[in-house]
Nucleic acid binder design. Structure first.
Lengths: 345, 345
DNA sequence: CTGAAAGCGCTTACAG
DNA sequence: CTGAAAGCGCTTACAG
């Protein structure tokens, strides 16, 4: 690839008969040039196909005009989880206007994750990062402070981390699911949790327990799992082998619910006749299964765009307050129905 | 965020009692400094926590040390398609060692996709891009040439684009699926295509037709669809409403197969007793459905890592030849079985 | 409203 | 083997 030399600001300045500074001013549209001159300069720039060099601008401004997003690749979960794609699309939407760019990194483990944050920060690749999937006692907060790397946390947390945050209210979603099942007469409602290393797994479990208690039910069928299809299947086998089978299972995500439903069907149970099942995420595919999956629809796209705009403001030293997005919405489909009549109180 | 000033190469040079050039040499490890001095310099750099500034390096070297990947967001497909996550993870693996970074962009439509390529190129944000999901008569080739932006095509194509390419052999995968079904005695085998705007949809259809003919069967049940769950469901309803129903359906991806299976089940058909079904992709969730999905396992991770290393070489003006990865592998699971005995020839 | 100069933090010839 | 200088392409005070 023998690049013909790209035009520089000097070329534009010369062609327009002005100084380089004038070109910069024209571009920013602020002050320093008359409207007329500005037009001419922009026309020339457009003509030559000139856009300021990102690295030169970054060097001058001490600003990369880039945001970082580091995903920890939990191989089985990542691929199946539509969260990231939507979240990134949402963030992108905000970055695109603003001439910013997203630097994405995928880390295999904690060590390489840490290394990624470190190098993004010390090389000045990004001006800030988006944080998701909080772990309990997440060590990233300390790291970010040490690196003095601005961040916005796109998740709910108990941690007092001092970064601006954006989150959906999971609790409301779980409560809606439980209410829905109770209305159908279910009393033996089980829960399959996500990986408790993640805060949202713990939070959903706590919300589940609280919701059950509110209805005077005993949360004695909570099985710990890990958000994977495999984990969901195993937890389901375990629940179904108990002496008192649940009449409904609330899963912490769609993927486990789908795998769990298959396990139940394989054992000859009818859904929802014998067993009601609910997911969490609102993945598109849930609508197209047999039976279709009752779930809670979260909004990763909105979460991504909101978090990104908070981060952009935060980097610019504007005051940004925490944002709570509307509660995710219960989507009632075919996998839930009346409790079996044989069920005791 | 009151950044304490980051150390620069000058700080390192002073602290080590050498020139800035010496630091650069020490870092590259090539020539110019004695092993001893080199050690000392690196120790000092480590001590101060210095890493070269990406933008300064980029400006000097006229190299961004970044690769671009632009995804066109087809909202319904993207979220459900695990391809991207795996592909990106594979590419990342290669970039990480090498100090490179991936710039990800998500485009809503062709216009914003074009704009993304243009700005990445003209701002010098990236040194090259990875191209996937080729369309028939893909206009990106012309664009890339115009922009003189190095690229590697991670897909098979008939187009004579002049860029290095890496691809898996789809044809083999489709042939394996058809052979498998024929061995089970199926003769009325249908195909639900992906969106024919994409080359791989067309290629899979052609492979299907060829495979059927090889077995002396008539490919008279090919329904055009679009890779989405909805599309797969509709195509399936159409096929099942025909006077001569197929005994097996080959879908161009897993997502459509899953949705198609649900449609068949909803109509009371047993899978595989009444209808055999196959997907394409080998998504993890397919293993956890009821029945589990027979499919073809592709390897997006390998595709991503191979494409990324080709691109890195291509950017460095090394000669890179096209790579054909091993044929994807047939994964036989529960959704395929013997043809129903009532079936005529 | 405009122009010349210095600086951002590297790298790269070019002298010594 | 090492040092001083120029340059990468912008932006930003600072004069005019």
């Amino acid at each position: 690839m023998n690049q013909t030399k790209k035009p520089t600001i000097a070329d534009v300045a010369k062609a327009a008969g002005v100084s380089k500074a004038a070109v910069t001013f024209a571009l920013k549209g602020t002050n320093g040039v008359s409207a007329e001159t500005r037009e001419r300069i922009l026309a020339v720039a457009d003509d030559l196909g000139w856009t300021p060099s990102a690295s030169a601008r970054a060097l001058s401004n001490r600003r990369a005009y880039a945001l970082g997003f580091i995903i920890r690749r939990d191989p089985t979960v990542l691929a199946a989880d539509p969260f990231f794609a939507d979240f990134i699309a949402g963030a992108e939407e905000v970055l695109a206007d603003g001439g910013r760019v997203m630097v994405l990194s995928v880390a295999r483990d904690e060590a390489s994750e840490r290394a990624s944050y470190r190098s993004l920060a010390s090389e000045g690749r990004v001006d800030g990062v988006l944080i998701t999937d909080l772990r309990t006692d997440d060590e990233r907060f300390a790291l970010l402070s040490e690196l003095e790397l601005p961040a916005v946390v796109a998740s709910q947390t108990k941690a007092n981390h001092g970064f601006p945050s954006v989150h959906e209210d999971d609790e409301g979603g779980v409560a809606e699911v439980v209410d829905h099942l109770v209305q159908f007469g279910h009393t033996r409602i089980a829960h399959v949790t996500g990986d408790p290393a993640y805060e949202h797994a713990v939070r959903r479990r706590e919300s589940f327990v609280a919701a059950l208690k509110r209805h005077g039910l005993r949360p004695d069928a909570v099985v710990e799992s890990d958000f994977t299809a495999n984990g969901g299947a195993e937890a389901t086998r375990h629940l179904l082998s108990r002496s008192t089978q649940p009449s409904a299972i609330v899963y912490a995500n769609d993927l486990m619910a789908v795998a769990g439903a298959a396990v139940a069907q394989r054992q000859g149970l009818r859904i929802p006749g014998d067993l009601s099942i609910t997911g969490f995420d609102g993945t598109d595919i849930g609508a197209h299964l047999f039976p279709s999956l009752t779930t809670v629809r979260t909004n990763p796209f909105l979460l991504g765009s909101t978090a990104a705009s908070s981060l952009v403001k935060f980097i610019d030293h504007e005051t940004v307050s925490d944002v709570t997005l509307p509660s995710p919405e219960l989507i009632v489909r075919d996998s839930t129905g009346p409790a079996p009549t044989d069920q005791g109180a």
